[in-house]
Nucleic acid binder design. Sequence first.
DNA 1: CAAAGGCGTGTGACGAGGTCACACAGAAAA
DNA 2: TTTTCTGTGTGACCTCGTCACACGCCTTTG
Lengths: 219, 219
Amino acid sequence: MSWTNNTAEIAGLDAPARALLGTLTPVEVPKGAVLFCPGEAVKGYVVMLSGQVDVNLVGPTGRDILLYRVEPGQSCIQSTLGLLGGDDYTAEATAETAARLVLIPRDVFFALIDSSPAFRRLVFSAFAERMQAMMQLIENVSFMSVESRLAALILDRSDSDGCLHMTQAEMATAIGTAREVVSRRLEKLARSGCIAQERGVVTILDRKALNQVVRGAAF
Amino acid sequence: MSWTNNTAEIAGLDAPARALLGTLTPVEVPKGAVLFCPGEAVKGYVVMLSGQVDVNLVGPTGRDILLYRVEPGQSCIQSTLGLLGGDDYTAEATAETAARLVLIPRDVFFALIDSSPAFRRLVFSAFAERMQAMMQLIENVSFMSVESRLAALILDRSDSDGCLHMTQAEMATAIGTAREVVSRRLEKLARSGCIAQERGVVTILDRKALNQVVRGAAF
DNA sequence: CAAAGGCGTGTGACGAGGTCACACAGAAAA
DNA sequence: TTTTCTGTGTGACCTCGTCACACGCCTTTG
């Protein structure tokens, strides 16, 4: 599926959907922009065309935790919640890269739901996907150790050279813990030879050992 | 809205929905029955007619955490996830009371989605509601103290006499912590005069103080 | 009735994790 | 170069989850 800057060409959509969406123009959002924050009213249903947006829950201490990332072709579920239930946002969305997205106003959204089976499928599957991810998140946060979550993060966000370009603070947010804890765990992983660390970069030295850690090895 | 044992009368549904649902017969489930457990394949979309079902996530240590409760008129989102994404269950559902429910097979479910706007609304709003609850849960588990969560639980699950009939183990599950922790926190709340406790029952003595605890008072 | 379990509860010890208050070093800006 | 910012390390302290018990109440059963 290809994502162009023409909203009428959103992959897989049918005639009625294209007819309604064709009138909308994409919005450009610069890197670092906050798309919405807690308490704000919902303006419409959001579909990403390009770029990447992270949705975080922010705690009273300033600590935050990544709920999910929105990538091209996906939609922001938070907005759907608002449209369907009338509630305001409880999370905060930030553009991690410059992004282009379509904002589908409330009435157009409902018209689409009723007229386009393809659009229904899009919304439903987005829902299902996010929900699954949320349950996974709850499971991870409540039942997995920080060490395991950290090892998992390093493994699946690292590039082909085995390098992960993230600060400790970013890692902390991604796995839902505090920065200091990440510092201590990374040190432990480094001491045991799994990884090497320098300012802003973690390098995998022993993939196999790291996988053991994910699966709950004590070391 | 009234929930009868006639599936065709599910509140608020329209003609096409009634036509399709009229052919289904409700299933009776005894108290304590496990409706589904992790890894099991999804059989269909479930709508509750009466009774109460709790959906829990179970950790490797045996500790579990209540994701949400399904009450009459609501549906079990877990099943929807399975239908839409093809994934198996990751949580466990247990009947807390004897229950009656309708299992809508996969193909009927999709027929309903396409033909009945009312059914679509039902499914969508169920989704939105659960999602919101999940986000609330993540927020509570990651950012609120056990003491606050416990106080909140006591306040909103107690009867009109200010009595909560639950064991410490049940409370622990409901707020996602361990039984021993509940024991210690209850003792603290009792010492400070907020509540009185006896075997299987907690009684509220000072509602105002308890509300302070919910809002994060240190005491 | 008494003995035997089951169940709900209390408790101590211990390790993991989150918070606060710093110190320190490399990088970027002035 | 000096200043400032940003990423990182560290110690102290408290909360929380886990393990391993003990104890008391209730029900069942002989």
